[in-house]
Computed example of a mutant assay.
Amino acid sequence: MRNDPGSPHDPSISDLASRLRAAEEAIRARDDFIAVAAHELRSPMNALALQVAVLEHMADKTGGPVADEVRRLRRTLERYVRRATVLLDVTRINAGELKLACRPVDVRELVDTVVATHAGEAAFHGCRLDARVDGRITGHWDTHMVEQILDNLVNNAIKYGGGHPVEVSAVRHGDEVRLQVTDHGPGIDEQQRAKIFEKFERVVSTSAYQSGFGLGLWIVGRMVAAHHGRVDVQAGPQGGTVFGVTLPVDAEAAISKDSP
């Protein structure tokens, strides 16, 4: 008996299902490989970063060209560590494993940490990096994710800000906290802003800085969504770009409230 086209026993449908299963297995194998590779890359680089930090401390006592070269080495190493972290985050997102591990987060401490981390990079680009936190704010969030969110936004602002000042601010409005990163660079046109949080989109495609995966803002969007927050990008009132992240003060409570 000949099978009717479109029936479950149709050879063409069976072949398509087989191909889909093979594709899904290939994607899982790819993600597993990326996760392992990223972990294996990041672990020795973290150890190396500690050794470079010691060298930098020693070199700072003498100053001169050696100190400058060690600082340059540290910045290069930090970029590679961030790339390995991006690969791990992408793997977790693709696998649907972006789960929150919430605990109290001191927002002033968070902002100070991110600003201090990027101080050397900002100086290298001739950029002044300012921070302002209104009062004492504590959020109940996943510390790693929120630090990664702010880190990506500050990194982009410095990279694409053209050496102009960058401001990082935080303020609480009721049951929400607004984190904001403002640069005074060339800005981003409206068409780019509409798709900037898509995967593989760069902040400024015509920039001289073309390194990176074009994944940072996509990851930001996914991590903000995991906290049931919102992220937006606007033109600055006097030029440049303003990235804003609004998070519920208690992410776990917000998620539980919205769960069916």
Rank of each mutant, 00 (worst) to 15 (best):
D89A: 11
T91Q: 00
I93P: 03
N94I: 10
N94Y: 08
A95Q: 15
E97N: 06
E97T: 12
E97I: 07
L98G: 02
K99G: 05
L100G: 09
L100V: 12
A101R: 13
A101T: 13
R103Y: 08
R103V: 07
P104M: 11
V105I: 14
V107I: 15
R108W: 04
E109D: 13
E109V: 04
L110Q: 03
V111P: 01
V111K: 04
V114K: 05
V115F: 06
T117A: 12
A119M: 13
A119E: 09
G120V: 04
A122I: 02
A122V: 04
A123H: 11
F124E: 07
G126Y: 01
G126F: 02
D130P: 00
D130Q: 14
A131Y: 04
R132H: 12
R132E: 11
R132I: 06
V133P: 10
R136I: 09
I137N: 04
I137R: 05
I137M: 07
T138C: 08
H140D: 10
W141N: 03
D142C: 13
D142P: 04
T143P: 07
M145D: 11
M145A: 15
V146D: 04
V146P: 00
Q148A: 15
I149D: 04
D151K: 03
N152G: 04
N152T: 09
L153P: 00
V154S: 00
A157E: 00
A157G: 02
K159E: 14
Y160M: 00
Y160A: 01
Y160P: 00
Y160H: 15
Y160I: 01
G161L: 00
G161R: 00
G162C: 12
G163A: 08
P165H: 05
P165C: 10
E167Q: 06
E167A: 11
E167D: 14
V168N: 03
V171W: 02
R172A: 15
R172C: 09
R172M: 12
H173N: 12
G174Q: 08
V177C: 13
V177W: 01
V177N: 02
R178L: 15
Q180H: 06
T182W: 07
T182H: 12
H184P: 01
P186N: 05
G187W: 03
I188S: 05
D189A: 04
E190F: 01
Q191D: 11
Q191M: 08
Q192P: 01
Q192V: 03
Q192K: 11
R193P: 01
K195I: 09
K195E: 11
I196V: 15
F197G: 06
K199V: 09
K199A: 11
F200P: 01
V203Y: 04
V204H: 11
S205T: 12
T206N: 13
S207M: 06
A208M: 07
Y209P: 03
Q210M: 09
Q210Y: 09
Q210E: 13
G212N: 11
G212Q: 07
G212P: 06
